[in-house]
Each structure stands twice: as C-alpha cells, then as structure tokens.
Amino acid sequence: MTDIIIAADAWDEDIEGSLLTWIYPDGAEVKAGDVIAEITVEKLQVDITAPGDGVLSHAINEGDLVSKGGKIGALA
C-alpha cells in the first residue's frame, strides 16, 4: 500500500486547494506517472501523478479541501 501524498512544494503559498477531479475512478489500475487527479488552488491547476503502479483507492471526494503534504488516496 502506497499513500498518495500532495508534495510539500506542490504550490507556493501556504493556502488550501480543493480536489477538482479524480481522473481515474476508485478501483482503477494505474501506472506510475499517470496523472490521476487535479487540484485547483486559486488560479492554478496542479496535477497529481501516481507514485507507482497499482489499484487506486480514493481517500477524499471531489470538492474536498486539501493541503500540501496531505493524503488524498492510496495505491494497492
């Protein structure tokens, strides 16, 4: 099980973003480097890529607030 964590330097300012979209559904098989989610932070969109190969599980829902360093899901 690998956690999917938002990088501590994913955006500059110390503000929250929100999960814009899960590009792949819960339970989808993804490969390392696939863009699996998008986060929106004010005018920015931040891509979240899969840290490895595996089956995706969502820990949060679209529209939920997220912070740098926070966990949004996991790969099994």
Binding site: L20, T21, W22, I23, Y24, P25, A28, E29, V30, E38, Q45
Partner: peptide, 10 residues
Amino acid sequence: APARKVVMNR
C-alpha cells in the same frame, strides 16, 4: 485502459 474523466481545459 481505464476510462479517464477529465476537465474541459485538459
């Protein structure tokens, strides 16, 4: 490949 859901600007 599993279906991708993407936002319009992507």
